[in-house]
Computed example of a mutant assay.
Amino acid sequence: MSTIPDNVLWPQLRPRLVRLAYRMLGSVADAEDVVQDAYLRWQAADRDAVRQPAALLHTIVTRLCLNELKSARRRRETYVGPWLPEPVVDTHETYADDLTLPLMLALERLSPLERAAFLLHDVFGMDFREVSDAIGREAAACRKLASRARDHVHAARPRFPATREQGMKLAAAFFAASRDGDMESLRSLLADDVAAYADGGGKVPATPHPVLGLAAVLERHARMAREFVHAPSVLIRHAMLDGLPGFITIEGGGVLQATALQIERGKVAAIYVTRNPDKLRHLNAAPGR
């Protein structure tokens, strides 16, 4: 039986549960909804029968996320353009688990059970007995699920990432060069195989397909630079977004935008631009940098 009162237990566990739900779903709003639902179920639980409240709450959140992913996958089949996770502004307290945006995209390509087993064991430190209880599979099966997921995540992990300071300096240089139309400076910042992804979700204008390769990305930014002359890009702040250096801006037409840069060997290897307003509502209250 749990002897920790709710007004102590819940504030301690809630941030961790939101992190788990966000890593599972890639959506801040959906994560908050799942955790709120979990709290209501916890309130209705027989407390006298609960020996490990934290394990039970992780199980509830995981199973709610697995149910949500069934409908989320159907929605993404009809999603307009590239799908990116909702960007979260990193602070010292939030999401400090080494899962960057590219690694979250790697998780997106896994089955829901693989994702759950990996997150619960490798990221949140639960043993496989607890993972087994949470996802309803034998412990041996959970080991295999986590192992397959680990291989995918390892393959997606940058081999030569930048430090936080190096990344923020490069992001500032990228912003200046791209907004000033300085294509030579921009060229010097980009990897030859750079890729750019823009998520507008069909709600605001965005490039509907990934832009691949140095020449194509430079051409796209040259067109954008001509647009900035008439509709300047306004910098709100530089920020770390899901573990990547980047910045938040207001673009033409008053569109809020988050740009995150994946750095590899001192060059920008990938550009992730989120413009879908449904994915940016939470950034208005995010702390500045």
Rank of each mutant, 00 (worst) to 15 (best):
S147E: 14
W83G: 08
P85W: 10
A177P: 02
E32N: 09
G246L: 03
E32G: 01
H282M: 04
I60H: 01
M1C: 14
T91V: 05
K267D: 03
L189P: 00
L218G: 03
Q52D: 14
A55L: 14
I236K: 10
T163E: 08
A171R: 05
H230Y: 08
I135A: 07
Y95N: 15
V123D: 08
L283I: 05
G253W: 01
I271A: 09
E108W: 09
L145K: 14
S233T: 06
V131L: 14
L40N: 06
D48S: 11
G254M: 10
R109C: 04
V18L: 11
P277M: 13
H209T: 07
R150Q: 06
A173W: 00
V204L: 10
M24F: 01
H58V: 01
A29M: 11
M24V: 03
A191P: 00
G26I: 09
V8P: 02
R14T: 12
Y39D: 03
R143Y: 15
E68I: 01
G26C: 06
A155I: 03
G81V: 08
G81L: 02
L20H: 06
Y22A: 07
A206L: 05
R289C: 04
T163M: 07
T249Y: 02
S132P: 04
N67G: 10
G181T: 04
A54M: 05
A239W: 04
